[in-house]
Design a protein around this nucleic acid. Sequence first.
DNA 1: TCTGGGGTCCTTAGGCAG
DNA 2: TCTGCTGCCTAAGGACCC
Length: 356
Amino acid sequence: VPARRVIAHLDCDSFYASVELLRRPQLRGLPVVVAGSGPRAVVTTASYEARRFGVHSAMPASQARRLCPQAVFIAPDFDAYRAKSRELWAIVAERLPCPMQQVSLDEAYLEVTALERPLAALRELVGELRERTGISVSVGVGPSRLVAKTASDWRKPACFAVLSREQACRQFASCSTAILQGIGPKTARRLAELGIETVAELQRADEARLVERFGERAGRWLKARARFEDDSPVQTDRALKSRSSEVTFDVDVSEPARLEQTLRRLAAEVCEGLGRRGLRGRTIAIKLRYDDWTNVTRARTIAHATREPELVIELALALLRAQAVARPVRLLGVRLASLEADDRPAPAQLSLLAPQ
DNA sequence: TCTGGGGTCCTTAGGCAG
DNA sequence: TCTGCTGCCTAAGGACCC
């Protein structure tokens, strides 16, 4: 690990909405909201015009409609977003010979430490991406993923922000602790209960007090976060850990037959997805969300990895039937984990032969 | 008028083996 | 033989991310 790293975070500006605008240029300048159409849909992405009305992602679509009735609502088309994403990151890989970790369709970290003039190369790359893909990208650069990530979010859209750790500490001192990646609403609220609202307050916080409240590991980690201390590496090849399918019903469901029918479909979808990737799983899990938003998961691990729909359906149904469904069900899901690649030999004999 | 779907990682707890 | 310690695995729940 080099003593000093240079890491860039590239973040596409309102990516899904931007892809839709490329297909429908006549909508440019209008508020655009990408969201499902059902009664329980949420906003996936809002264009910056729509954000001015207070619309943001993860907001119920019904609420977005009230805030901005004149917005153009578009149903998400993930095939299109995946295609555009592949195109864009292929250009990045082609132009910059450096380790890249794609973290979602629209975001990636680049380890640009070894490049000769990283900032110039990144600026050139952003221009080329805009020209060739029509997508605007925000860039943050810093000594860690955390600084780079925070910087890229700082003056979105179309920003290019370079910060040292110390500059980040000063720049975001008065911000809420929730701007730090990894600190979500729950943790921010628990910190606030300790009188810690801002990044600066967390920087100065008594570590013993944090450890007492959050545990050894998390306590130290929170303080390090506020000081923008982060040595996590840019990981280029991360294996898929699980695959799942879930559905929220438009109206809560109580009939067992309907739940079982849905479970069969979800299990088959998961198996198909694993088949496309040449994977099988040993752990079969189901997930239930009741009308009161309590979640229940039940899982079973079997001896040999599978993606046989018949077997997965049978095991998922057994888990569902063993769980007394007491309330109306809002969401049902199926997940396969403990994934193994197809070509991997069965390890049954190995455990007998290997010492220890 | 409430709150999607796809994931990852962490924590806790219990069983089990050395 | 009993007990403690440790490591590993599985299960369940929860926080967080885009």
